Amino acid sequence: CKPMSYEEKRQLSLDINKLPGEKLGRVVHIIQSREPSLKNSNPDEIEIDFETLKPSTLRELERYVTS
């Protein structure tokens, strides 16, 4: 899986911020299912740190927000 450039992460962040509330739950689910360290975090307060997410997680999020 190809790592994301800074610009791609920035765009992904903007795209996620534009999602309606009902789609954000899926974003949280994708992150929690792929990032063991965030599995028990509160979905309402999850802070997405794009620098610490795996490339595969970032690509999955990218696919979701652009679908």
Rank of each mutant, 00 (worst) to 15 (best):
G21W: 08
L38R: 09
P3S: 09
R34G: 09
E51P: 03
S67C: 09
I16A: 00
K9Q: 03
I46F: 13
D44G: 10
I30S: 00
L19Y: 03
N17Q: 09
E35K: 00
R59E: 05
D15E: 14
E22R: 02
Y6V: 08
K54T: 08
N40A: 12
S56H: 05
I31G: 03
Q11C: 07
G21A: 15
S5Q: 00
G21F: 14
I16E: 03
E22T: 06
K54W: 02
K2I: 01
R59H: 04
K54M: 14
S41C: 15
G21S: 14
E7Q: 09
H29W: 02
I31S: 02
L12D: 12
I48N: 07
T52I: 06
P3Q: 05
L53R: 04
L19C: 04
K9T: 04
S37L: 12
E62L: 04
I46C: 13
E47N: 11
P20H: 10
E22L: 03
M4V: 02
E45F: 08
N40L: 13
V28I: 15
R34S: 10
Q32C: 07
K39M: 10
R59M: 07
R63P: 01
I31R: 02
I16S: 01
N17F: 03
R59S: 03
E51F: 01
Y64E: 09
P43T: 11
S37E: 13
S33E: 14
P36K: 07
L58K: 03
K23M: 14
S5F: 00
I48F: 12
S56P: 04
I46K: 11
K18P: 03
P43I: 08
K18E: 01
L58F: 02
K2G: 01
Y6P: 15
E60T: 04
V27D: 08
L24V: 08
E60V: 07
P36C: 08
S37F: 11
P20M: 02
F50V: 15
E8C: 00
K9F: 07
E22M: 09
P20S: 15
E47Y: 03
C1L: 09
S5R: 03
Y64T: 04
R10V: 09
I46V: 12
S56T: 11
K2P: 00
S41D: 13
N40F: 12
I31C: 05
L14T: 09
S41F: 12
L14R: 12
E47P: 07
C1E: 14
I31M: 05
K18L: 08
P20G: 13
R59L: 07
E35C: 00
L53A: 02
L24P: 01
R34I: 03
G25D: 12
S13Q: 14
D49L: 05
T57S: 02
N17V: 03
P43H: 09
G21P: 15
S41I: 12
R63G: 11
L53Q: 03
P43V: 15
E60I: 02
P20Y: 09
P3D: 09
E7C: 04
R26A: 12
S5W: 00
R34K: 11
R34L: 14
Q32A: 06
L14S: 12
G21L: 11
T66Q: 15
N40D: 14
K23A: 15
L24A: 09
L12Y: 00
F50Q: 03
P43E: 12
K39E: 08
E62Q: 15
P20Q: 14
S41N: 11
R59W: 12
I16D: 00
L53M: 13
R63L: 09
Y6I: 13
S41K: 14
P3I: 04
N40V: 12
P20A: 09
V65T: 09
P20T: 13
S33K: 10
I30E: 05
I16H: 03
M4T: 01
Y6M: 11
M4Q: 04
I30K: 00
L12G: 06
D15R: 13
E8Y: 00
E51T: 08
E7A: 10
I16R: 01
I16P: 03
V27G: 01
L61H: 07
S13T: 09
L19E: 03
G25M: 15
K54C: 10
